[in-house]
Design a protein around this nucleic acid. Structure first.
Length: 389
RNA sequence: UCCCUGGUGGCGCAAUGGUAGCGCGGCUCGCUGUUAACGAGAAGGUUGUAGGUUCGAAUCCUACCCGGGGAG
């Protein structure tokens, strides 16, 4: 069975309908990929996944390698069995933590926080990245080989190459060096994977119970580096392409430029994943550019912080549940929303739950935001199907 | 009636001689491959009242008002 298939190519744009087939099910693309960093979509029990309409989720190798560790996951037969997430899963490589923990370390250093606070990112070399574990304080080294080993033990259906997410504002010199490093790391990921998984070569590209590897395009905010990166990644023995290093602080225009630069170099037969993008208004634009899947923490994090989404005409608006002005609001978050939260509860009640830090509040808000996103994606798929997008 | 104890920002508390801090709440802002049920910021008090001691009082003294406890 073929891993990825383009079912329909839009004539109005580069948008396309596709099918991602994995041992744990088939995903209709364009697809949203909710984030389940530690093997759980925060606040959502797996039994709700069908009702919400979630097709696939995104786990993180950094967090899972630190706890419970690949060895434990392997003993349990992989993340699907261990976590109860019986859907297609993608795992991130820990590459993003090179950026996010580096940023946190930088902030720590600048703000001179508490004595004894250890930097979380200890260094990046050609070999890999060294971290201070937030779990136990031990030093831990991530290399492409270690990432691939842990991803194999985690057992997600789709794995990401180990990359370096370049921080916004990086000099061209640094961006070039980091992009080259990401490319070297990709070669090592492909090599590490081949040893374990000889069938994962581009000519075959069938899942056959194996993990599919996505290479990651970097290049920062520099057009030539982005193009060069896309060309380089596209010709490797990979099963899909991801675009990384976006939404790291740049403007929306810069972000759209970065994606626009690489789009022409993405082989049409490969599925394309846009890492970390989660603003629906942007996503629509990226779907038009031919992107197939999107992971993002924002909607689930916003939900836990009391912000839910409402559709106002063609716009997507944020609605804050936490203010006292919601105390007597009898309506649901959205009157015509079919989700569990909106069918059963008033804004007033959910506001009360947030005010009192009751766990059901986080659940209901997350439930709504995920449902909202899944419906938006369903809507986009229908529009492509009908030739309207 | 007497004794003890306490009255500090909306709420709960801290600061016992050097012109008031914290938590929660409220308000505003921010969250994009999750160190994030998180973070940032501004606002808010003539320390129950009236006197006194002192260079200086939330803090010591006196009286009164209010709460809690005890004795009769």
């Amino acid at each position: 069975m073929k891993f990825f298939e383009v079912v329909k190519q839009s004539k109005k744009s580069k948008a396309r309908l596709g099918l991602l087939s994995t041992p744990h099910g088939t995903v209709r693309t364009p697809a949203f990929v909710p984030v389940a960093t530690r093997g759980t979509i925060k606040a959502i029990p797996p039994k709700d996944i069908p009702d919400i309409g979630i097709q696939i989720a995104f786990v993180n190798t950094f967090h899972l390698a630190l706890h419970p560790g690949g060895e434990v996951l392997k003993k349990f037969g992989g993340i699907h069995k261990y976590s109860g997430l019986n859907i297609p899963l993608m795992s991130d490589s820990a590459g993003f933590q090179v950026f996010s923990l580096g940023r946190a370390s930088e902030r720590q250093r600048r703000m001179r926080t508490r004595e004894g606070d250890e930097a979380l990112l200890l260094g990046i070399t050609e070999e890999g990245a060294r971290f201070r574990s937030p779990v136990d304080g031990n030093e831990i080294a991530f290399t492409p080989e270690f990432s691939m080993q842990e991803q194999a033990r985690i057992g997600a259906d789709i794995v990401m190459a180990f990359d370096e997410c370049i921080y916004y504002g990086a000099s061209k010199e640094y961006a070039k060096k980091a992009t080259q490093r990401t490319h070297e790391w990709l070669l090592r990921c492909v090599a590490a994977k081949k040893i374990k998984n000889p069938s994962s070569v581009r000519s075959a590209r069938t899942f056959a119970g194996k993990q599919m590897l996505y290479g990651i395009v970097q290049g920062g905010t520099y057009k030539d580096l982005r193009e060069e990166s896309a060309k380089f990644v596209a010709k490797q023995h990979i099963d899909g392409i991801a675009i990384g290093g976006v939404a790291v602080g740049e403007t929306t225009k810069e972000m759209k430029d970065a994606v626009g630069w690489v789009a022409p170099y993405l082989p049409p037969e490969l599925p394309r994943h846009l890492l970390g993008i989660g603003r629906l208004e942007d996503i629509v634009a990226f779907v038009r550019q031919g992107m197939d899947s999107f992971d993002c923490v924002e909607l689930t994090r916003l939900a836990r912080n009391g912000i839910v989404f409402q559709k106002k005409g063609a716009r997507f608006e944020r609605y804050d549940l936490t203010g006292t002005k919601r105390l007597r609001e009898k309506d649901p978050i959205e009157k015509d929303c079919p989700c569990y939260a909106c069918r059963n509860f008033s804004v007033a009640f959910i506001h009360h739950l947030f005010r009192e830090r009751e766990l059901l509040g986080y659940y209901l808000a997350t439930y709504h935001n995920l449902s909202f996103f899944e419906r938006a994606f369903q809507d986009m798929r229908e529009k492509i199907e009908q030739g309207n997008l």
